[in-house]
Amino acid sequence: MSTDTLARIAGKQEAVDALPLMTARDVHVYYGQKHALKGVSIDITRENVTAFIGPSGCGKSTFLRCFNRMNDTIDNARVTGRIELEGQDIHAPEMDVVQLRARVGMVFQKPNPFPKSIYENIAYGPRIHGLAATQQEMDEIVTRSLTRAGLWDEVKDRLQDSGTALSGGQQQRLCIARAIAVDPEVILMDEPCSALDPIATGKVEELIDELRGRYAIVIVTHNMQQAARVSQKTAFFHLGDLVEYDDTSVIFTDPKESRTRDYITGRYG
């Protein structure tokens, strides 16, 4: 990415939102010898759903996992550059990675509820972070989280059933409810619908739209229609570079870069 593009993007960004919730500056990620992400800078705002799109292996999931330092769990991964949450460096020694992951929640590609009861799935996060002092407060958190995830009506009579007994779409919304329960500021979603059927996908997309504004949402997706439907900002990645970052409407109708245009029109694999 050329410096003037960066300046243009940054300038535009500052004009729109005075205070981005998360910022990334010149982030590189290496997996052993492989240079997976090559100096990416971006601002994430609370008001918008941000979509990361791009062909497989372009580094979008890798970049997403930088925001809550999930790359720390990969043995040979190395991250450089600066990422800030509300102006605080997330790699600073005083930043506790456990608290960071509570503040920056994550939803994974494959629904991964704990093999425990639905109630326990939601209550686990608040319990380890001490968010509920009494059983009543915990009940409230569970009810509120499931309601926000649009799952309450479907599971209210069987909260003690196993979370793994739900359908795939319900499991994914349970995972979203689980992320919501610890009251995060950002929710990262790594291709949350790729394992779901179209109806379940529709429900998750509706849910993302409802959650917008309350949480900053970053979603990685392979599905360009999905990016167009749910996001207000779209970032296009290619071979570890952030090629273009702009309003979703601009990316899909009038992209500046030819590589973006080729991808949008289906000329990339």
């Binding site: 999930m70 769990t73 939803v107 689980r178 610890v182």
Partner: peptide, 17 residues
């Protein structure tokens, strides 16, 4: 499955937890 570890780490469980 590693997805269980991801799930727990992803909501801020420590490694020990």
């Amino acid at each position: 499955p590693p997805s269980i570890r991801d799930a727990a780490l992803g909501i801020g469980a420590s490694r020990l937890q």
